[in-house]
Computed example of a mutant assay.
Amino acid sequence: MAKAMTKTQLVAALAEEMGTDKKAAGAALDAVCNLITKEVSEGGSVTLPGVGKIYCRERPERMVRNPATGEQFKKDADKVVKMTIAKALKDSVNG
């Protein structure tokens, strides 16, 4: 399995792809990440064409079990961030 791309590597690749310097590419990446975070935390969703859709989903209150002790307890309702992968990305990975 290939190693995950770090932010530094991503910024360098983005700068090369955009034909700009790393500082501008890093600022663009940070701006996109901040916009996604803001939109999803407010309950919205963001679609990245060719990549997927990032959204927030509410999970209801439920019973969970502590695997160490076997004790069951009620877990409060919470929100989780989900991502649906775009068909184009799935197809490119599966070749």
Rank of each mutant, 00 (worst) to 15 (best):
A15T: 02
V93S: 10
I54C: 01
V51F: 11
G19L: 08
D21F: 09
R65G: 08
A13L: 13
M5D: 01
L89T: 04
K7W: 06
I36V: 14
A27Y: 03
L10I: 10
L10C: 10
K87E: 11
D78Y: 15
L29K: 05
T37M: 11
L48A: 00
Q72T: 15
L89K: 06
E58D: 15
P67E: 07
A12E: 12
A31D: 08
K22W: 00
A28N: 02
V46M: 07
Q72Y: 02
V46F: 02
F73K: 08
Q72G: 08
L29F: 09
L48P: 05
T20P: 00
L14Q: 00
K38T: 06
L14Y: 01
F73V: 05
K87W: 03
C56T: 11
D30P: 06
E61S: 07
A13C: 10
G95H: 09
G70K: 07
A2F: 03
I36A: 01
A86P: 02
A25W: 02
I54H: 03
M63Y: 08
K79C: 07
L29N: 05
K79I: 11
N66D: 06
K79E: 09
K22E: 10
V51L: 15
V40S: 04
K23I: 14
A2G: 09
L89M: 13
T69Q: 07
C33L: 15
R65I: 10
A77T: 04
K7V: 10
T20R: 13
G26S: 10
P60I: 01
T37F: 05
A68V: 05
R59L: 04
K90D: 04
S41Q: 13
G70S: 04
C33F: 15
A31L: 14
M5S: 12
F73D: 08
N34M: 14
G44M: 07
N94E: 08
G50R: 06
S45Q: 12
N34A: 15
T37P: 00
G19D: 11
L48G: 00
G26V: 01
I54A: 03
R65N: 00
V64F: 02
V81T: 15
L29V: 11
G50I: 09
G50N: 09
F73A: 04
G19P: 00
Q9R: 14
K38A: 10
A77V: 06
A24M: 09
A25K: 05
K53Y: 06
S41R: 15
V32Y: 02
M5E: 02
I85E: 01
K82R: 14
R62V: 02
V40H: 03
E39K: 10
Q9M: 09
P49W: 08
T47A: 14
T84H: 01
K75T: 10
A68R: 15
Q72C: 04
A2V: 11
A86G: 03
N94K: 15
V46G: 03
L14N: 09
P60A: 14
V32P: 02
M63N: 10
A13I: 02
V46C: 07
A27K: 13
D91H: 05
G95N: 14
V32H: 03
